[in-house]
Amino acid sequence: MFKTLLKQLSPAGERGRLSILIFHRVLPERDPIFPGEVDAAAFDAICGWMKAWCNVLPLDVAVQKLKERSLPERAAAITFDDGYADNRTVALPILARHGLTSTFFIATDFLDGGRMWNDTVIESVRLCQSPQLDLTQLAKRDGSGHLGSHTIDTPEAKRQAIEHIIGQIKYLPVLERHLLTEKIADCAAVKPPVDLMMTSQQVRELRDAGMQIGAHTRSHPILAKLEADAAYAEIAQSQRFLESVLGERVGLFAYPNGKPGTDYIPESVRIVRELGFDAAVSTTKGAADAGTDLFQIPRFTPWDRSRLKFGARFADNLWRA
């Protein structure tokens, strides 16, 4: 049923459309704090559906065919953002088993023992042994208020606390955000893990297994809030670092967070073009067609765990596009 429907919504050739799925982590098993996050069982099911319904292409091939207006029917690509270690240890074997390829966009500062700021928050709350986490002493530099006190005695309470804290600090300057998250870990009396992200060797292993590697800035900043020189450095240095790790050109880029106007701006797009990338992806819902800006390609992932609901939302995204 879905294969026929997707053929109608995503025909071959001139009217072709490209659906790109976006993931971040594939957990070994379901997380009680974030039960909706993709785990190995869910990702295995998704890969099976994609294999049955779609023509899954490497992203660079898909972009070239989109440009040439020669996409196959039911064209799709799979992507991952950030560079989590479970991309290599959990996702790669599943992709290989289904004969699928993916592009992995890497925030390079976090390789080899680094940690993303949001994971410092998540793991601080997760590992905190107290039922209450008091952050009232932590005020933001702009004077807009403290981070509050949170009851964290259940998985649901931990999730709510994490979402509130992340929402409070997400758009702060990179350094201030980093310093605040380290203070949160101190308040929680926690030393967050240092093995959540990939090593450089694991990035090479992904490439050697037939996967593609793309750039995702150095420190995952909100590009829209950076001066042009700082944004240029973030993008260019991540590209150069990955090229040195892989010994080959890196031509694909993903904007951190990825919402146009909020997370990146036309200046960000100009920089990506200037640096010679072939294409860049956002997190705008929809599917790409012949008229899509190749430096602002949309991505979307249905969050449903059932085959019927996942397929229906996948088709709906194409239809709305």
Rank of each mutant, 00 (worst) to 15 (best):
F295Y: 12
R69A: 03
A76G: 00
A157F: 03
V245S: 02
Q296G: 03
Y264F: 04
N87G: 01
I122E: 15
D304H: 10
S144V: 04
L71Q: 08
G261Q: 01
T283M: 09
L180S: 05
A91M: 02
A215D: 05
D293L: 00
T89W: 09
R299K: 06
R159I: 13
W53D: 03
R88W: 11
S70L: 07
P131T: 03
D31A: 02
G113M: 07
M50E: 05
A77C: 04
A157W: 06
K65R: 02
F43S: 01
D229V: 14
T199P: 00
F23Q: 09
S70I: 03
A45E: 13
K3Y: 15
V250Q: 01
L71A: 00
F310A: 04
I78T: 06
R30Q: 11
F34H: 09
G247L: 10
P256G: 13
R88G: 00
P58I: 06
P32W: 02
E205N: 06
H220A: 08
P131I: 01
A41M: 13
V174H: 13
E227Q: 12
V125E: 12
R30V: 14
T301Y: 09
R126G: 11
R177I: 14
T136E: 13
I166H: 13
P35H: 11
D293I: 06
K3S: 14
F80L: 04
V281R: 09
A312S: 11
K3E: 15
T151Q: 15
C47K: 07
H98C: 00
T154F: 09
Q239F: 14
K7L: 09
V281M: 11
M211K: 05
V63P: 04
H146Q: 04
A40H: 15
